[in-house]
Nucleic acid binder design. Structure first.
Lengths: 255, 255
DNA sequence: AACCATTGCGTAACTTGGACACAAAGTACG
DNA sequence: CGTACTTTGTGTCCAAGTTACGCAATGGTT
C-alpha cells in the first residue's frame, strides 16, 4: 500500500466498492484513561471517526487495516469488526456535497460520494505511545480524545463509538485484552487500571491479580518498575502463545 | 411488503443497493435437533442460505426481516447480524451469469448481478412448527436440514453457517435463548435438549434446571404435559419482561 | 528516621458448580 | 391389576471459585 496519502474525493466512480465504507474506533490507553482517535473535518465544527472506502477488489478487513495504518502509522494491529450500520438515513448527501464544493471538486448529482453509504464498524486496540496521528486530506486535525470528553461527532458516529465500547466490554468477558494497548512490559496496577477504565468500575486489587493470573497468559519478569513512588511493582508481559490461544478459545463460557 | 414474491433477477440496475446482500441462517428446533432452512438452487446441485438484496432506501435490518418473512411466512422474529463477509473472491460472477442464462434473462457484462457482492450474515431463531418454507424464484426447494447433515452449499455459505453457529453459542453464554425457538409452553427437558444441541454436548438434568431457574426468566405453570410417556413434566413459559431485560443486560459477565 | 501510600501474599466466609441419591409419577406389559 | 421401567421433582454433599478483608514489606517523602 502506498504510504503517500492520496485524495480520496478525487477518485473516479468505479474505484471503490459502491455505497460502502468502513469506520474505525481506535482505542488507546494513556494516563489511566481510555482514549479514541478522532479527525476534525475541514470547514465544519464536527469530528469524525477515521474511515475509508473499500477498493473494488480489496478485502473489507484489509481496507480497515489500511485506514488504521494511514491514521496511526501502525501495522498488524488488533482490529475487529463489530457491527454494520445500515439505516438509509445515516448518510448526509448534503453534507458531502458541501465537502466537495469546499474542496472545489467538480461533481455531477450522481457522484459516488453523494450516494447512500452503509458502513461497517471496526474497533482497534493500539499502543498509545507508538501512534503518530495523521489527518487525511479531508480533515485538519487528528487527535486523541478522552472517552469522557468526546466532542460532537458527524452523522451517527457517536452511536458507532458507543456500540464499539459495548463490544469491547463484551470481549473483556470472554477474551483477554491488553496486548497492543499496553507497552510490552507493564505492571499489574497498570493492567488493572485498563480493565477498570474499560469496565467503568473499580476492582479489588488482590482479587484482580488472582483472577488474571489464573488465565495463565502472563509472565512475571525478574524486573521491577523503579523510579516511581512507593514500592516498586513487578513487571509483567503477555505470553503471546497463550494469549493467542485464549483469544481463539475464549476464557470462560458460562456453559 | 408485498406478499407476492417477485423475480429478483428481473429488477433493474439501481433498484438495489449495489454490491451488497444479506444472508440468513434460520435456525429451527425439531425432534431434538437443531435445523437450518436451506434453498436448492435451480439447475445446480448446490444449496444456499436464504438471502436477498437491500432496496435502495431500505434499512439493512429491514431487508433481512423481509427475506425471513418471505421464506418462512413469519414476522417479528429474533434476528441478529453477526458478521460481514467481504473477501473479494467470495463472489462467483460465472455462476451468476449461468443463472441468468438459464432463466433466459438478457444481460450486459456489467449487469448488477454479476458484480462483486459483500454480504452481511444474520441468524434467526424461529419456531419450527409455525414455519411454512417457501422457495424463491431462483430455487426449486426450500427445506429444513439437520445441522449434522447439511449438503454442499454454494460459495462461502458453509463458512457463514459455521460462523452463525459460533455466534449462537456465544450468545448462549451471556444471553438467554429459547423464546421463538420453542412453543409458548414447554417443558424443562425440552429446553435442555435445545441447549444441548446448540452446545453439542450433554448437560446434567438437575444442574441445568437449577442454573436456568436462577436466571429468573421462567415461569412454571400449574399445568403438566399430559399424554406423553412417563411422569408428566411441568410446563414453563418465559416471562417476557424479564427475558427481554436479560437480553439487554446480559446474564453474567465474568467481571 | 519516622511516615505513608502502595505492593505482595495470604486467609476466612460465602457462593457457585458438578456429581449423585431417592422418591414420586406415569406407561408398558404380563 | 400389579410389577417393571423410565422419567421427573427435589435435595444433598463436596470441591472449586468468588468476595472481602488483614498484614508485613518496600521505597520514596518529609
Amino acid at each position: 500500500m502506498d504510504q503517500e496519502q492520496e485524495d480520496i474525493l478525487k477518485y473516479d466512480q468505479g474505484t471503490f466498492h459502491p455505497g460502502f465504507s468502513v469506520d474505525c474506533v481506535i482505542f488507546g490507553f494513556h494516563a489511566n484513561q481510555l482514549r479514541v482517535l478522532l479527525l476534525k473535518m475541514k470547514g465544519a465544527d464536527v469530528w469524525a471517526l477515521p474511515g475509508g472506502f473499500v477498493f473494488k477488489d480489496e478485502d473489507v478487513e484489509e481496507a480497515a487495516n489500511r485506514v488504521l495504518q494511514l491514521r496511526t502509522g501502525l501495522d498488524n494491529i488488533f482490529l475487529r469488526q463489530f457491527h454494520l450500520f445500515g439505516k438509509p438515513d445515516r448518510s448526509q448527501p448534503d453534507f458531502n456535497a458541501k465537502l466537495l464544493r469546499q474542496r472545489q471538486i467538480p461533481f455531477a448529482p450522481n457522484h459516488w460520494f453523494l450516494q447512500r453509504f452503509i458502513t461497517l464498524g471496526f474497533y482497534a486496540l493500539v499502543e498509545y505511545s507508538r501512534v503518530t496521528p495523521r489527518p487525511d486530506t479531508n480533515s485538519e486535525a487528528c487527535e486523541w480524545w478522552d472517552l469522557q470528553q468526546v466532542p460532537a461527532l458527524m452523522q451517527d458516529h457517536r452511536q458507532i463509538l458507543d456500540k464499539a465500547l459495548e463490544a469491547l466490554r463484551l470481549q473483556l468477558a470472554y477474551q483477554p485484552i491488553g496486548y497492543n494497548l499496553l507497552a510490552e512490559k507493564f505492571t499489574m496496577p497498570e493492567l488493572q487500571r485498563l480493565y477498570e477504565t474499560i469496565l467503568g468500575k473499580q476492582l479489588d486489587r488482590r482479587n484482580f491479580q488472582r483472577k488474571i493470573l489464573a488465565y495463565d497468559i502472563l509472565e512475571r519478569l525478574d524486573e521491577r518498575r523503579s523510579g516511581v513512588a512507593h514500592k516498586a511493582p513487578y513487571l509483567y508481559r503477555f505470553n503471546l502463545e497463550k494469549y493467542q490461544q485464549a483469544l481463539e478459545q475464549g476464557l470462560e463460557g458460562g456453559w
